[in-house]
Simulated scan of single mutants.
Amino acid sequence: MPWPDERGLACYLSTDDENGFLSRVADQVEATQLGMASDLLDHVEELLSGGEATAEQLRYCVGRLQESLRDTLRVADSRGERLPTLDADATHAACLGLLAHAHGRALQGGPQ
């Protein structure tokens, strides 16, 4: 879940229904948090490009960046836990196959 419990610990939603009400709410909250993080980065970039940011403005931005990074990491952790576990040997073999295929196309003068 994209929010902590009352003790600040990660919340987990245990469901088999990815389209259930709580799953949809969590997805919407995650999307909002990621959108806000993007907007915050734009704001900080604009603030820093002016070269005249005050110490108070910088402290405020650092606080918001900390909150945003915490939310973004929580989203990444949550989404990462939903990914299937990959077999390292099978992944390595697939990568080698893709590289060999790309290399073969390059040797033949085909698009890369």
Rank of each mutant, 00 (worst) to 15 (best):
E46T: 11
E81F: 04
Q33G: 04
M1I: 07
A90W: 00
V62E: 12
M36L: 13
P84T: 03
G50I: 03
G109P: 08
T32C: 10
A93Q: 04
E67C: 06
D5E: 02
N19D: 12
Q33A: 15
Q57A: 08
E56D: 14
G109T: 09
P2V: 05
H101K: 12
V44H: 02
G97N: 09
D27A: 14
T54K: 09
T32Q: 14
E30T: 14
R105W: 03
Y60E: 15
P2K: 01
G35W: 06
L58G: 08
T91H: 08
L58K: 08
S23V: 03
V62G: 05
L99T: 10
G80D: 01
A10L: 12
Y12W: 08
T15Q: 05
P111N: 15
D89C: 00
V75G: 00
H103C: 11
A102F: 08
E46M: 09
H103T: 14
G80Q: 02
L99A: 12
G104I: 14
R74S: 04
T91I: 04
L22G: 00
G8E: 03
P4V: 11
R70V: 05
D27T: 10
P4C: 04
A106N: 08
G35E: 02
R64E: 10
G110N: 13
R7W: 09
D42F: 09
D89L: 05
Q66F: 10
N19Y: 07
T85P: 00
L48S: 10
Q33Y: 10
A10D: 15
H101Q: 14
E56R: 11
T85Y: 01
A93G: 00
R74E: 03
E6M: 05
R105P: 05
P111G: 14
S78L: 06
L98P: 00
Y60V: 11
Y60K: 14
A31N: 13
T15Y: 02
H103Q: 15
R74T: 03
A55P: 01
H92P: 00
S68M: 04
L34M: 13
D16K: 05
L99Y: 11
A55G: 00
A26I: 06
S23N: 10
A106L: 11
E81Y: 04
G63C: 05
L86W: 00
A26N: 13
L83C: 07
A26K: 07
R79N: 11
C95Y: 05
G8S: 05
Y60P: 00
E81D: 09
R59I: 13
R24A: 10
E56V: 14
Q112H: 12
V62Y: 10
M36D: 12
V29A: 12
L47H: 02
S23Q: 05
A90Q: 07
E45D: 15
D71F: 03
G109D: 06
E52V: 03
